[in-house]
Simulated scan of single mutants.
Amino acid sequence: MEIKEIAKLAVEALEDVKGKDIIELETSELTDLFQYMIVCTGDSNRQVKALANSVSVKLKEAGVDIIGSEGHEFGEWVLVDAGEVIVHVMLPAVRDYYDLEELWGGEKPSFVPTGAKPWKAE
Rank of each mutant, 00 (worst) to 15 (best):
K8D: 15
A62T: 04
L51G: 01
D81Q: 08
D65A: 10
V78D: 00
I67D: 04
M1Q: 11
A62G: 03
R46G: 02
D16V: 04
I3A: 07
F34D: 00
V94D: 08
L59F: 03
G106T: 10
T31Q: 08
V57L: 12
G106L: 08
V11L: 07
L33R: 09
Q47V: 09
I67Y: 12
K8E: 15
W119Y: 15
K117M: 13
S56Y: 03
H88S: 07
D81K: 03
A93G: 08
I38N: 01
D96I: 03
D43G: 10
D81M: 06
F34A: 12
N45Y: 01
V48R: 08
D21G: 05
A62C: 05
H88Y: 04
V17R: 15
S28V: 12
G115A: 07
E76V: 02
P109L: 07
D65M: 09
P113R: 13
G68T: 05
E122Q: 11
A50L: 05
R95F: 14
M1N: 07
S56T: 11
S56W: 01
H88M: 06
S69H: 04
D32I: 11
L9D: 04
S54K: 06
G68K: 06
I67A: 12
G115C: 02
L59E: 00
T31R: 09
V39L: 14
Q35C: 04
Y97V: 05
E101F: 11
A52P: 00
G63F: 02
V89Y: 14
Q35E: 14
V80H: 04
P118C: 01
G68P: 10
Q47I: 08
V39I: 15
